[in-house]
Design a protein around this nucleic acid. Structure first.
Lengths: 188, 188
DNA sequence: CAGCTTATAGAACGATCGTTCTATTTGCTC
DNA sequence: GAGCAAATAGAACGATCGTTCTATAAGCTG
């Protein structure tokens, strides 16, 4: 709705992701967004609020990036394409780990930040489940396979960050392929 | 060497892991360790120093916990037992994500903290490689399989945290089992 | 133009943070 | 017991942080 609000959210996401929640102050965000301090506090009464907005903003972009391309993927491709999109995403942004994992870890107190961060992971698990169904797995098989695919995605993100190369994502994709191919519930 | 130093390190590890690097101040660490402020600064001239000490302390405990039990595991058990130990570890400590991943993410500036955190991941990859060799895989097969096992371990840690149950670790273990069993380089 | 919302620059506040300092005491070793 | 390193309690510092406030300027709608 508000241009300024969006500018602030985007700047916050960039800085918080790149440098950390504790490191980045509001003055930095205000500077990066090129808005006045008063404008910031008009839109976000507390720092907590802008962090939540940054999380939601990044989540939307991330989920959209993951689901691009094959509109009606067949079979395993519904899952395997997620790893390809993940690789694109990881190579486009500066890799600094999973924003949501970090947000939850650095904000142990129950509250909007932790809630938003953990909710994203639940939505990711649901996204994987939905993709399995899209690929042709029945509901039971999808629910059974989703946690493993989720683990592979989480591991791929983490390892791509810490090892710094694309091997990890490729390894995760290959493993997903093996898993799906060897599963008795594979679609025709 | 120094009892006080160890007390401070242990207190810092506990607090920093549970509550985050930005949230916990030195006064909190000093309070938890029950030492005077001057004692703290005698042992750790900068906050950075105590963070690095906390990382190394946790790493030592973690790696030790992972390698417990079957002294000479045979075949896949060399790897699969890692997931069992990981489950024990995750259920013993308050789950708040991977300490090292968080440390690296929240300290983007190159420096001792990021270095220690990322070095741990390299050591984990080496640990996995060594376990594969211990299980009977030759060097080539071990190097090929290690990144995937590493991804599964990373994914298990992350998912155990965000999903909050043990399903994730079990799923990762089963996948490792499948992977190792279906690999052509499996030991006799 | 009037009137209202929004944005601006910047000072200012209280709290907290990492760090330093002082003065005193404890505990070990010669 | 002398001497010295280590630990204590606590005040104090400058910097930074999140937040509030004031005063002024744009920008849009009637």
């Amino acid at each position: 709705m508000s241009k300024k609000r969006d500018d602030i959210t985007a700047a916050a996401e960039r800085l918080l992701y790149r440098e950390g929640f504790g490191t980045v102050g509001i003055d930095r965000i205000v500077g990066e967004a090129d808005v006045a301090l008063g404008t910031f506090y008009r839109h976000f009464p507390h720092k907590e609020d802008v962090i939540v907005a940054a999380l939601l903003h990044r989540e939307a972009a991330y989920m959209t990036a993951l689901e691009g391309e094959p509109a009606q993927p067949r079979g395993a491709e519904a899952i395997l394409s997620l790893f390809d999109r993940l690789l694109d995403w990881a190579e486009a942004s500066d890799r600094n780990g999973c924003f949501f994992l970090r947000a939850a870890g650095e904000h142990a107190a129950p509250g909007p930040i932790r809630k938003a961060a953990l909710a994203h992971k639940q939505r990711m698990l649901r996204l994987v489940t939905a993709r399995l169904r899209l690929g042709g797995w029945d509901n039971v098989a999808a629910d059974r396979l989703a946690p493993t695919i989720f683990v592979l995605l989480e591991g791929a993100v983490a390892a791509a960050f810490t090892l710094g190369d694309r091997r990890a994502v490729a390894a995760a994709k290959d493993t997903a392929d093996l898993l799906l191919a060897s599963d008795p519930g594979a679609p025709a």
